[in-house]
């Protein structure tokens, strides 16, 4: 699966670079939206079929929320620490990590705040996060742990990474992944501006 994902991305980059005019990017948003809707619809069916899982989740209770919380704190702390070594301002580095893999949103928030280069950095870094997550979810799930594999995805655990998580783990982890993705996605527009405003 990881190899297929890697090939799909590389083929896309090649196609975009060599064959498509820049104007094509005007239509990409709609294509992604439609593709994502179809994908999410079928992922939804998959989750809905696991009827007894909902009861299990009720049993898990609020402690499940520790997963998205750990993902958010881990992402921000991780990017802040490496930011120090890269001679970046700690708040700007933290804001990149706070994108949680949602590259389009985090980069747009930063751009609207006037951070042009930081926006590009956030875009790429969060694209990479998504690619890293998609490639390594099966590996992390196998050798480290299922919940840890969810953590790699961040906000994308609810959409693009969800099919990979569900095929690499179990239905219960998939639901935790979705909960994690929803909470992370909700958190991105809140925490990126907050972390950016941190006094340093």
């Amino acid at each position: 699966m990881s190899l297929k994902i890697f090939i799909a991305v590389i083929l896309g980059v090649g196609t975009g670079y060599f064959f498509l005019p820049t104007e094509f990017s005007n239509n990409i948003g709609l294509i992604i939206d439609i593709g994502l809707m179809v994908l999410l619809f079928f992922v939804g069916i998959d989750i809905g079929k696991q009827k007894d899982i909902l009861d299990k989740i009720k049993k898990l209770g609020f402690k499940v929320l520790l997963v998205p919380l750990a993902v958010i704190v881990g992402s921000v702390v991780g990017s802040m620490i490496i930011g120090l070594f890269l001679n970046m301002k700690i708040n700007e580095a933290g804001a990149i990590g706070a994108g949680l893999g949602w590259y389009s949103l985090s980069s747009t928030i930063l751009l609207s705040d006037g951070y042009v280069e930081l926006s590009a950095l956030a875009f790429l870094s969060n694209v990479f996060r998504e690619i890293i997550a998609l490639i390594f979810i099966p590996v992390v799930a196998k050798y480290i742990g299922k919940l840890e594999s969810v953590s790699t995805a961040g906000a994308t655990a609810m959409d693009t990474a969800l099919p990979v998580i569900s095929s690499s783990t179990d239905p219960q982890t998939s639901i935790i992944a979705f909960i994690t993705g929803v909470i992370c996605s909700t958190a991105v527009p809140i925490i990126v501006p907050i972390i950016l405003k941190l006094p340093v």
């Binding site: 896309g12 980059v13 670079y17 498509l20 994908l39 095929s167």
Partner: peptide, 17 residues
């Protein structure tokens, strides 16, 4: 799987373009 690979292909295009 088909939807996912398609989306990733498109994501690649957004970078390449």
């Amino acid at each position: 799987t088909v939807c996912l690979l398609f989306l990733l292909f498109i994501m690649g295009i957004t970078i390449g373009i």
